[in-house]
Design a protein around this nucleic acid. Structure first.
Lengths: 212, 212
DNA sequence: TTATTGTTTAACTATAGTGTCAAACTCTCT
DNA sequence: AGAGAGTTTGACACTATAGTTAAACAATAA
């Protein structure tokens, strides 16, 4: 039976395409490069996905689904916000580390200013609500309870996500400027999680008296 | 005299190229698209810059210079760190807002994993030192003086820069999720500066007693 | 074994993209 | 006005790329 072989080929093409589109963007990617990365002949791309556009859209839809999922962190509603925040950062960074292509491709699409991303966002937004909604609500609750200062939840989420994602889309530069990121990336990522939590939660300013 | 006209043409090509390379990356950019954006005929691109590669490298070198400069914030050495930090955020965000193409192009190069960025960084690094060095030293001094907690300066700089830059390279998404960013971008940017400073310096956790 | 179905391959077409060139144009100086 | 320098234009050549097609191949089931 050729099903497993075929499924394998299709999957290899798909994954290779994810990587190449992430690196080069929609227009920069070459079908030949994707074929090489998948280790197959170029016409097979067309056999499985018809056109470059369709292959891209399949990849993008997949990525967008992951992007939305990445915000779905299992949280306990009444847990202290410090724990919710720690859990979000931990889960989110792990997610992006595991799916670096996702973050890269979403950013590449943002850079290109394409409408595709906006359409997907609008559609998902209309049905599921903002991806960040849960966390924004948690921020509001924590502020009401007085555990954290009264901050703009949208700005706060943007700050947290920025701190968790940006280094993945600037890896060559980060590796250049930070020896640990170059020599032991996993250790760097773990240190990063801890740092982001501490700076976001406690800030830089020293405290004479600390709560929490 | 045709000099001013010519200089004008060359400058228009250059600026158009900056924009297109920022959006599409090196391989995704089309000479025709750059010509259209500059409002001139395509052969003129070759007249002034020979090849696409040379045009790209001219753009990249320019961008890289701006990138290095963007970290050069005039600081008073013995000012309180809160002021140094505020000044850096203010100056840095203004710089990126004014040169959005710079941030976009640097990120696009990071995504593509090209060696060009690494080479430039290594060269600049060897002669001028790390771009972030000044701020990292300020962070160390402030920690020694006890104004801020003892944090890893590299991680801290990464967090600050992430918070200041990431939204520029994710604008379509940010605009989708944040009404203010859509309706009054400048107001959003100013609010963002303030928010980044407050979160980074004070953190989210409420304080019973505050210093600084 | 042979027909059938689905997959892979090589050769091909058509188009889009880069780079070249010589003629036309423009400005300036004499 | 006419010569000369630099600039702009349209037409062209060549290459790279997307997409097609038909034949070869592999696996399965009769």
């Amino acid at each position: 039976m050729a099903d497993s072989e075929a499924a394998d080929t299709e999957a290899r093409i798909f994954e290779a395409a994810l990587r190449v589109f992430a690196r080069k963007g929609r227009d920069g990617a070459r079908m030949q490069e994707i074929a090489d990365e998948a280790g197959i002949h170029r016409p097979l791309l067309h056999y499985y996905f018809r056109t470059k556009q369709q292959l891209f859209e399949a990849c993008f839809t997949h990525m967008f689904g992951q992007f939305m999922e990445s915000f779905e962190v299992p949280t306990v509603e009444d847990a202290p916000f410090s724990e919710i925040l720690r859990g979000f950062i931990d889960h989110y960074v792990d997610n992006v580390r595991e799916h670096q292509d996702m973050a890269m491709m979403i950013v590449a699409e943002n850079l290109s200013g394409s409408t595709l991303l906006g359409e997907h966002l609008a559609r998902a937004f209309a049905t599921r609500g903002s991806p960040q909604q849960r966390m924004e609500e948690a921020i509001l609750r924590a502020a009401e309870k007085g555990e954290i200062r009264a901050v703009d939840p949208k700005q706060t989420m943007l700050t947290i996500v920025s701190a968790c994602v940006f280094f993945f889309v600037s890896l060559p530069t980060v590796r250049m400027l930070n020896p640990l990121a170059r020599e032991d990336f996993d250790a760097f990522v773990e240190a990063r999680k801890e740092h982001v939590f501490e700076v976001v939660y406690y800030g830089l300013a020293s405290r004479e008296v600390s709560d929490a």
